[in-house]
Write a protein that binds this DNA or RNA. Sequence first.
RNA 1: GGGGGCAUAGCUCAAUGGAUAGAGCACCGACCUUCUAAGUCGUAGGUUACAGGUUCGAGUCCUGUUGUCCCCGCCA
Length: 585
Amino acid sequence: MKSILEKLKNSVSQALITAFGKELAKNDPLVVAASNPKFGDYQSNVALSLPKQLKQAPRAIAEQIVNHLQVNDFCETPTIAGPGFINFTIKPSYLAAQLSAIQTDKRLGVAKAKESQKVIVDFSSPNIAKEMHVGHLRSTIIGDSIARILEFRCHDVLRLNHVGDWGTQFGMLIAYLREVYPEALTTADALDIGDLVDFYKKAKIRFDEDEEFRETARKEVVKLQAGAEDSRHAWQLLCDQSRREFQVIYDLLDIELQERGESFYNPLLPDIVDELEQKGLLKEDAGAKCVFLEGFTNKQGEPLPLIVQKSDGGYNYATTDLAALKYRIQKDEADRIIYVTDAGQANHFAAVFQVAKRAGFLPENVEVEHVPFGLVLGEDGKKLKTRSGDTIKLKDLLDEAIALARADLETRLKEEGRKETKEFCDRVAKVVGISAVKYADLSQNRTTDYKFSYKKMLALQGNTAPYLLYAYVRVQGISRKGNIDFQQLRQDSSILLEEETELILAKHILHLGEIIEEVERDLLPNRLCQYLFELSQKFNQFYDRCPVLQADEPQRTSRLILADLTARTLKLGLSLLGISVLERM
RNA sequence: GGGGGCAUAGCUCAAUGGAUAGAGCACCGACCUUCUAAGUCGUAGGUUACAGGUUCGAGUCCUGUUGUCCCCGCCA
């Protein structure tokens, strides 16, 4: 289904051409949603951009555009306002017809992408032998939402978990375990993940302090990379164990992800260095093989290097990222590659992308994007930590949110004298707790840091997951109370938009497609959150002023349809954020 | 020192170069015999850090200043 925005853009472009000639075809018609409802539903700012080109006053230009506009099948007569804005108001009858049209559509009228792309979303990426912590929260949640949105638009999405399962730290860990706890290297599940993390910390201390141990660890890396069987087996056990732990969290968060760790690219690393050598990009500096970057300089104004092979012959993450990029372009045939990592890695990705371009394996038609996000801060404005200053484990953080949601539910049940089963409480606590954490994260513009507050994210009022979930529950409450089967209703499509709140709600429902396309382009899920929050507000206003079940026909059916469409829009929108809905809460 | 990000209401945050900068929270007030008041309505709150510039039009783009956070050769 063609969106209203698209129809208007086409109409304005057409009017521009008929009024001023073919050369205007390349001008953007500058149609956007109106900045203020009093200006109507949409506005075109194009007349304001043309005075120089056309040597006429903006209002005169606007008049000629309006005279040539053919929009009366769906739009009231456009008006000109201020210095030359053209304002459009959509006819209620057209809105009603659009709503009827999307009623039977699972996609609620949201178009599929014109061209389906192969898109890789690289997100989450924890490290083997470490627990997932708060630092993985944003990548995991934002990456998943981006993947869901692209999938919904019918792109072919490959969700990759680029886990840290390779490199120096494994030599270190295996060498240490050989000394203090050799069973762990031969027996599955000999120690749990918490122990593993402890051993990792101790190994790191040894590594930093003890020259001899450092040497042993290096040899262990070499053994591992050479494929020595016992090392390989030990490594495999460590990875399996970590993987099971990660899966607990991914299950809790309802996130699917394909693991393809750094080790996967290991065999490709020598070729990457050779290729850079052949292209004449490689220079040796202090024993390390580097590509010197354009536009990145140190304090003396000298170019900064991207090190692709260390002086000891080992490879590092830059090499792996280059190999991964090349593989994803050539073997996965990706059209668009999205890296969801913290903003601190911006320089690194800019460097990797530059080198890939200069090496010739990153063609113009492949889009690579670093999608950065800010830090999760505590209430004190500093990086979120436990009281004792330790990193917060992701599992603990999520469990806490669920526990708080449960406590809140129990208080309410008591106050209202309600009795619910344990299954009900478990389910509500889990959905509310997890949704609250996800929504709090996604509703912020991801590029900035944000303050983590259980109290705010779990609040029942305001721009929070519980508020949105409640709007959905209200609709389901209507259907229970009135014994309404919304499925049945969809056969009957008479919609009347008479009350102001009905009209406002109807217009908002029809904006979903525009918002999703925007998020697909800019990868800012907070826009979708904003949309859903506003949808909930507009629904609550409608609910407040328009009785549904008590209304006479034909209003009753019309309002039921409007309520159902609201709920389905909420459910769909929330699902794209990775959030499920509840029938009661 | 060099590079980058950020700075918007008391607090947490929005805002494609477009009209009078918006929400939520908190505060103050109004509305439940009516589909879950977990709601709705209203009042108040701003020199968009500061100084210039570009533009018909700047919170948004450019330059500088201040504050703050991040990155800066063999961790990822």
